[in-house]
Amino acid sequence: MTKGEETRQFIIEKAAPIFNTKGIAATAMSDIMEATKLSKGSMYVHFENKEVLACAAVDHNMKILGDKLKAKLSKAKTAKDELFIYIDFYSNPVNPPLTGGCPLLNFGTEADDTNPVIKEKINKGCNASQQLLASSVHKGIANGEFKPEWNAEEFAVVMFAMMEGGHLIARMSGNNNKMKIITNTLKSMIKENSI
């Protein structure tokens, strides 16, 4: 990496948790300047405006979260393990795996009506999450863990929606009580479709 690329990456790494916590609209470039200890001129050498930096921060947040999840999933021995690990990974929204909570929920809620570029990034992330879940179900069907009639795509949508909804409820209430109901329900659904 060149010195310029290192500085750009440093700015993204410092900005990402701020955007994920405060949101894009509420984050000012002065917040990023304070976190990086860089001047306004330095900031604008690497990012032409806040929107460009916000897009990079969204990508960074989703990559960090995805890398953490992949590290956990790599320990799975079965398709059922993969689904349970996914559930457990996201089961504590009050103390989430990423500062500020789930970037799909945070940025998706903010960008759905205001930022088509970020909306598309989040939509791709939502679809990728559902495809990951569906592929675990398909793998489990193929290796005889799950009932062959289980609809992988439908379950993936339900599981993803329940987990994201649980995140919203938990973050608003400040506790994981209702998230526990959701995770237990999802695990029961998986067990019901196991052979």
Rank of each mutant, 00 (worst) to 15 (best):
T2Q: 11
K3D: 15
T7C: 02
R8W: 06
Q9I: 01
F10C: 08
I11W: 10
I12H: 04
I12M: 03
K14F: 03
A15S: 05
A15G: 09
A16M: 14
A16E: 12
P17S: 03
P17N: 10
F19G: 07
T21F: 03
I24P: 04
A25S: 08
A28Q: 13
S30L: 02
I32M: 11
M33H: 12
K37V: 02
L38C: 06
K40M: 01
S42E: 09
M43K: 02
Y44T: 07
V45N: 14
V45A: 13
F47T: 06
E48R: 15
E48I: 15
E48Y: 01
K50R: 13
K50F: 08
E51N: 06
V52C: 00
V52E: 07
L53T: 09
A56H: 11
A56L: 02
A57K: 01
D59N: 11
M62N: 12
K63D: 07
K63P: 02
I64R: 14
L65Q: 15
G66L: 03
K68M: 14
K68A: 13
K70S: 10
K70M: 12
K72Y: 11
K75T: 09
K75E: 15
K75P: 00
A76F: 05
K77F: 01
T78F: 15
T78W: 06
K80V: 08
E82Q: 15
I85V: 14
Y86P: 07
Y86N: 00
I87N: 00
I87C: 04
I87F: 01
D88K: 10
Y90L: 14
S91W: 05
S91C: 12
V94G: 06
P96N: 06
L98Q: 10
T99N: 06
G100E: 10
P103L: 09
L104M: 14
L105G: 02
N106W: 09
F107Q: 02
E110I: 10
E110L: 13
A111L: 04
D113K: 14
T114F: 08
V117F: 13
K119H: 08
G125M: 08
G125P: 07
N127V: 11
A128P: 05
S129Y: 01
Q131H: 01
S135K: 12
S135A: 13
V137N: 10
G140P: 11
I141V: 05
I141R: 01
I141E: 09
N143Y: 03
N143K: 06
G144Y: 10
G144I: 00
G144W: 03
E145H: 14
K147W: 02
P148Q: 08
E149L: 09
E149I: 12
W150P: 09
N151A: 15
A152Q: 03
A152Y: 10
E153L: 05
E153C: 03
A156S: 10
M159T: 13
F160H: 15
A161E: 03
A161F: 00
A161V: 07
M162G: 03
M162Q: 10
E164C: 08
G165V: 06
G166L: 04
G166I: 00
H167D: 12
H167F: 12
M172F: 07
S173F: 08
N175R: 10
N175Y: 13
M179E: 11
K180F: 05
K180E: 15
I181G: 01
I181C: 07
L186N: 02
S188N: 14
I190H: 04
K191V: 05
E192D: 12
S194W: 04
